[in-house]
Design a protein around this nucleic acid. Structure first.
Lengths: 126, 126, 126, 126
DNA sequence: GTGGTCTAGACCACA
DNA sequence: GTGGTCTAGACCACT
């Protein structure tokens, strides 16, 4: 029912924007359906302390997740994962579609045929 | 033998770094093998004027392409596309590999199987 | 843990490209292993003020060091020396090899024997 | 008695300043004592045509050699190599000393001992 | 005319 | 406060 920093297992690379990394990793954990609906997330301060980053940095990530209604902040109670499975499904679909489109766009920008692109993908390591 | 702005057909979005867009678009045009080896690119000032950006912005893009030896600048003469086809092939391979890896990484981050990923790609619009 | 301008002790000659001199001197200080790994360099603005040059000039030097991964810049935090000793060793080896090759090339271009070159070196002031 | 472009055998890299390359190569050929004292050099126009560069570029190189009195331009007659062997010896010594000092400086800038520098040189390919 | 360096100063992104 | 992008405009180096 309560998610700790260990479960999130956030890995930060100091050379890249921290709030984007936190945002990205929580968003993908949600999309992967690894996290229980309605569960409580660590508080901003708590997470900030554990990650050794400025609370504003964590707050900014939470705010963006809030905007997408993937999480819900209840004043005085804390921050919780949405209870609406369709929100999760929605973001999952979006991220997948975005990845697909981006891949197709890039291959087209390189002037590669669908054929070629697929065969390159086959060769890739999964 | 001389490439004009029309051939490059650069499209700029003012909300993103301009020099990166110029860099990206010329790089992909080269990787697509659309441009003749050894051909002369528009001068820094000329392209800047046509794109309505500052010459320094164009120069920064050119300098980065120079670093990768995709183009060659000759002071007093202008900027030219490399005459070494292997440099072009190299960047083409790199960009394709990068796209493939990035796609695979993202799908794995979403917990999707190779199977699912491929079927999503099949559905995509080419 | 923090490096100041005094430690770097940069000497600028206004008749040569400033950013190259800053780049050169920091690069050699790193190669000399005079600077602590992971230490914070002066901020772009701070160093610019102390050297009485434009911040862009300092930034350009920092960016090139960044490209070689000798330093790492973290937006909002500052600029730090790499923590990877192999990067430092690598640049040290490169700079030494370059000096050796350049010397040999020049002596050969003058048609001097290995013998003669070495004896000239012996006479030189160390 | 007359030196042609073949004897000079100039190799130009278009990506670097042309006049410097011409200057450098003639200067080193002289220092190497490869060229006969008093011999006639190709005319500015002739050399420019053969190298496919602008005559001004060749002229600039000749001017600098003139300044050092390594060559002598006689109006209406052409350009000739100096007849004074001491001028040639002088430039030879200068170029060698410069190479030696530059090598020593660089090694010192890398904090390397005379010992280390010499052993690196021994390893180098001659 | 072509590229290269530098400045002053504005405005944005991140912590 | 720290780095990043962009502009306008000056001056230099090379062909």
């Amino acid at each position: 029912m309560t998610i700790n920093e260990e479960t999130l297992n956030l890995q930060l690379d100091l050379s890249k924007p921290l709030y984007e990394q936190i945002l990205h990793q929580i968003r993908y954990a949600l999309a992967r359906k690894d996290l229980e609906l309605g569960a409580k997330l660590p508080s901003v301060r708590e997470l900030a302390q554990q990650l050794r980053v400025n609370p504003n940095t964590v707050m900014r990530a939470y705010q963006e997740l809030n905007r997408d209604e993937l999480i819900e902040t209840r004043r005085g109670q804390g921050t919780f994962i949405t209870t609406k499975p369709q929100k999760i499904q929605h973001i999952r679909d979006n991220l997948a579609t975005e990845a697909v489109n981006s891949f197709i766009d890039t291959m087209q920008e390189l002037g590669m045929s669908r054929q070629t692109a697929l065969s390159l993908l086959e060769e890739g390591e999964w």
